[in-house]
Amino acid sequence: MEVVKIVMLGMTGVLLGLFLKGTRPEYSVYLSLAAGILIFFYMADKLSYLFSSVIKIQEYLPLDVKYLTTLLKIIGVTYIGQFSSGICKDAGYGSIGAQIEIFAKLYIMVLSMPVLLALMEAIHGFLS
């Protein structure tokens, strides 16, 4: 099954990384980066299938495509922010990882602001 392959990949990355953490710590960072990227490539085709089906569903609903792309952007920013801050924390640089996470949250707020404004205008329209 696909999940077993992913688990095996992750386990080999962890074991090799642990083995190299004592003598050569920089290689454990490379190993976690490589394992993360390989796992992402397994996710990529599944994600594209999911997003195409979500877009198909969206055609039935009277929803604006703009909000859907904002949602996709937010998911992407979350994923890459989480991935990179996790690697920074693994390498021992927690502060840089925290900075990346803070910027990712900030960027998500910026992305979601137009949606919030549209909601406010809709409510304002109903009330007045």
């Binding site: 980066l33 490589a34 990227i37 390989l38 992402f40 990529a44 998911i75 992407g76 920013v77 994923y79």
Partner: peptide, 21 residues
């Protein structure tokens, strides 16, 4: 680094085109 660099480039390109960033 030279082994991993194309993978990193592929990662960011796939993320950009997948999430419409």
């Amino acid at each position: 680094l030279f082994w991993i660099l194309p993978y990193i480039y592929d990662l960011f390109r796939t993320i950009q085109e997948l999430f419409a960033l």
